[in-house]
């Protein structure tokens, strides 16, 4: 199934960036990519070929896409944005202390 395939590829790219890249900003990007993959999958999976779930005045609509996954995704996006902001803040702070954002060069990250 195409949706699943795209989801898994995106998810894996995100995972790869999270695990393998040593640049912390890239890790954050990877993490966000993972989240984005999940959101993409939710939206595209719930798409059954109907309209966006907004009534138009004066028109009788019959086939809507499910609005609930979209609402949930919106919440998820906001949480993802908050966490990403927090992570970036911490990375800025860490950069001030150790002068680098390469996690292999930051001492003590491993013990």
């Amino acid at each position: 199934m195409f949706t699943n395939l795209v989801f898994i590829i995106l998810f894996m790219i995100g995972f790869y960036a999270l695990v393998m890249k040593t640049n912390l900003i890239k890790n954050v990007i990877g993490l966000n990519l993972m989240e984005a993959a999940v959101f993409f999958w939710v939206i595209s999976f719930s798409d059954i070929g109907g309209e966006v779930a907004i009534h138009k005045m004066g028109e009788e609509m019959t086939k809507f896409n499910d609005p609930v996954p979209q609402a949930l995704t919106l919440t998820g996006i906001v949480i993802g944005a908050s966490t990403a902001a927090l992570l970036l803040t911490l990375i800025i702070e860490l950069n001030k202390f150790s002068g680098t954002i390469d996690r292999e060069k930051i001492e003590g990250l491993n013990d």
């Binding site: 999270l18 890790n27 993490l31 993802g80 966490t83 927090l86 992570l87 911490l90």
Partner: peptide
Amino acid sequence: AMQYLFYGIT
């Protein structure tokens, strides 16, 4: 805190 957040978000 950074590691905590990485694991937490995952």
